[in-house]
C-alpha cells in the first residue's frame, strides 16, 4: 500500500512516516500543494493523507481539483482545524475522512485501513480481524485457517462488519446490504442472522466479538492487539 503524506511540519511528517511504516504502509512525503500535484503525476497512490493549511495553498483546493478530474483516490484529511463546520466542509469538498490532530498512530492506521477496504478500492480483498479471514471474491470464511460453513447472507453480514471492524455499522445499512428492496424484512430477521453468525464463529473458535449497540447497530471487535 503506497500512501502520499502532504504535511508542512517536517517533524510531524517524519513521525507519521515512521509510525505508518511500522504498520506496514509505504509513505511518500511532500510539503506543499505543488509538491503533491507533482508527486501524483509521477506515482499512483492508494491513499492521500492531507494537511489543510499548506504554505502554498489550501489542502481542500487540492481535494476539489482531484475530484473534478474524477480521481477517486481516498483522501484522509489530517488537520488541526476542529471547528464546528470544518469537518462538514472537508467532507463536502470530497475528502473521505477527517481526523483532527492530535491523533495516535493506531487510530490513524485503522482509519487508513478502513478507507483502503472500501468497496471498489480493489477487487478480491482479503478481510481479516483477529483469527478470522474472509475472501471477498471467493465468499469464503476461515477461522484460524480452517474453513467455516456459513450461509451467503451470513457471509454478507460478516463482510459488512469486517469492512468496518472496530466501528459500529448501522442497522439500516446492514439491512440495506443484506436484503433486497422488495423482500419482506421482519424486524427480527437481522437480529436472528447476527445471532446465528455469532454462534457459528464461537463454535469455530473465533476470537472476535460481535457486539450489539442497542438502537444503533452492530460492531465487530478484534481482540486488543498488544500495544506498541
Amino acid at each position: 500500500m503506497r500512501l502520499l503524506l502532504v504535511e508542512d511540519n517536517a517533524r510531524l511528517a517524519s513521525l507519521i512516516r515512521e509510525g505508518l511504516d511500522r504498520q506496514g504502509f509505504a509513505v511518500d512525503w511532500c510539503e506543499t500543494v505543488a509538491g503533491a500535484e507533482h508527486a501524483l503525476t509521477i506515482n499512483g497512490y492508494d491513499l492521500m493523507l492531507l494537511d489543510l493549511g499548506l504554505p502554498d495553498g489550501e489542502g481542500l483546493d487540492l481535494v476539489r481539483g482531484l475530484r473534478r478530474r474524477q480521481d477517486t483516490m481516498p483522501i484522509l484529511v489530517l488537520t488541526a482545524r476542529g471547528g464546528l463546520d470544518d469537518r462538514v466542509l472537508g467532507l463536502d469538498a470530497g475528502a473521505d475522512d477527517y481526523l483532527v490532530k492530535p491523533f495516535q498512530i493506531p487510530e490513524l492506521a485503522a482509519r487508513c485501513r478502513a478507507l483502503l477496504r472500501r468497496p471498489g478500492a480493489s477487487l478480491g480483498t482479503e478481510l481479516s480481524a483477529g483469527n478470522i479471514t474472509l475472501h471477498s471474491a471467493e465468499r469464503s470464511v476461515k477461522v484460524a485457517g480452517e474453513p467455516v460453513v456459513a450461509t451467503p447472507r451470513e457471509v454478507d453480514l460478516l463482510e459488512c462488519l469486517l469492512r468496518r471492524a472496530g466501528h459500529v455499522v448501522a442497522k439500516q445499512a446492514l439491512e440495506g446490504a443484506l436484503y433486497s428492496m422488495d423482500a419482506e424484512v421482519t424486524p427480527n430477521a437481522l437480529e436472528a442472522c447476527v445471532s446465528r453468525l455469532r454462534k457459528r464463529l464461537a463454535t469455530a473458535g473465533a476470537d472476535v466479538q460481535i457486539r450489539t449497540v442497542h438502537g444503533v447497530g452492530y460492531a465487530l471487535f478484534a481482540p486488543m492487539p498488544a500495544h506498541g
Binding site: G166, H167, V168, V213, G215, V216, F221
Partner: peptide, 24 residues
C-alpha cells in the same frame, strides 16, 4: 445524530466494559 455518535463512541465504551444504548 444520536445514532451516529453512539455508534462512534460505542467502541470506546465497550473497551471500558460499558454498555451504551440508544433509543429514538
Amino acid at each position: 445524530i444520536g445514532r451516529e455518535i453512539v455508534g462512534a463512541m460505542a467502541p470506546k465504551a465497550f473497551a471500558a466494559q460499558r454498555d451504551l444504548r440508544f433509543e429514538a
